[in-house]
Design a protein around this nucleic acid. Sequence first.
DNA 1: ATATGTGAATCAATTCACAGCT
DNA 2: AGCTGTGAATTGATTCACATAT
Lengths: 230, 230
Amino acid sequence: MRRSGLRAKVPAPTVARLPVYHRALVDYERRGLQTIASAELAAATGVNAATLRRDLSHLGSWGTRGTGYEVRHLLTQVDRALGIDKESPIVVVGVGNLGRALARSGNFSARGLRVAALLDVDPEIVGTEVAGVPVEHVDALERVVRREGAVIAVLATPAEVAQSLADRLAGAGVRAILNLAPVVLHAAPSVRLGTVDLAAELQVLAFYGTRDRHRARRAVVSPGDAAAGR
Amino acid sequence: MRRSGLRAKVPAPTVARLPVYHRALVDYERRGLQTIASAELAAATGVNAATLRRDLSHLGSWGTRGTGYEVRHLLTQVDRALGIDKESPIVVVGVGNLGRALARSGNFSARGLRVAALLDVDPEIVGTEVAGVPVEHVDALERVVRREGAVIAVLATPAEVAQSLADRLAGAGVRAILNLAPVVLHAAPSVRLGTVDLAAELQVLAFYGTRDRHRARRAVVSPGDAAAGR
DNA sequence: ATATGTGAATCAATTCACAGCT
DNA sequence: AGCTGTGAATTGATTCACATAT
């Protein structure tokens, strides 16, 4: 397709696979590989080689026929597509077990993400620090979002309050919300909603695991399906 | 389609939506609703009404024309499809922040899930209890899996050890693994692999959030996409 | 009158297969 | 000789629209 610099319209499934490619490429670079063929990268990421090539072509990427892709160059392109160059500050709302786990998650900065602020209501928690980030009261949500220039928020609250907090986040200018609460949220179409419900994931696995041995396909799965647009 | 009792072959996207329907139906039942029309349930779950009806038809469900679906009956069918009747014991490997969060997650039993065992290597953690479940040493993995009759496991370990633990889990007879480590796992096709990588989800949101205001679609997302077979 | 269940149409992504480049 | 990039074929899910049931 060869879009000049910014791609036009990358299919959602492709976007969902980009972080996987990113990880694999970082790995190859670390191991000193110069070039990589689509077939090899495809095997490492569990993706069909033709699919991988088409994915890359959506980014306007360029491989060398007969040789493959230059690892470093390709990584740069994937990074740029994912916006890893400019770090995204994240606001985490709800500092329970899950929110805490997120805040402490180590491998964020390597992925262009930074937990910039933590919010909660519990007076026991507000005022403490988690992973060096102070927990502020959720009353200050709008102020904190603007202060940090946060475009992305994570909702790790009880389901009951998730919708109203999502509304407030949207109002404060957040552009995307990752909802970890087990509830279906509704938002204006200008706000991108992703949901990860671990219990639901397990229920899905239970469907396949419990039941008779279907033709159990699927060795590898791309993440981001939940956040990627339909 | 009307399969007698066991469905033949439910599309993966349908399976991924079942937990969402389940939650909505529990809610309707709690509120005393007798019947529900596909249009209403669809609105609540953010799914197209025709899609919802086709999903239900895959379960061999039966609504009443002119009236809708009986809430209690439909819930029973969804429960049965998801295997919520028989509780699934889960083994959680890796009791770090994320594993701990999972173990403490309240809403599991209502979903047919039970954290039956916790495993870790850290001598500081082994021997302690989390949410009433003792943390055992990962050396005992095979024994614990058999003792609990666990069919599903969660991998919440560092990425480096995830593959070898997945191999051991598969060897021990686990049928499905939810991988929370940021790494692509490979397994025999008899083992169902799902991956949830929160950082990757955020990267995907960053792709859309950072970038220009695409035709930002997607108000609601079904979970389980990662675990559902493609 | 109203809402289901489903053929048929549509839309989108995956995959094949090969022409074209190095 | 080898591997990319991509038209064309395929596969699969979503959605429309309506005949069918209550």
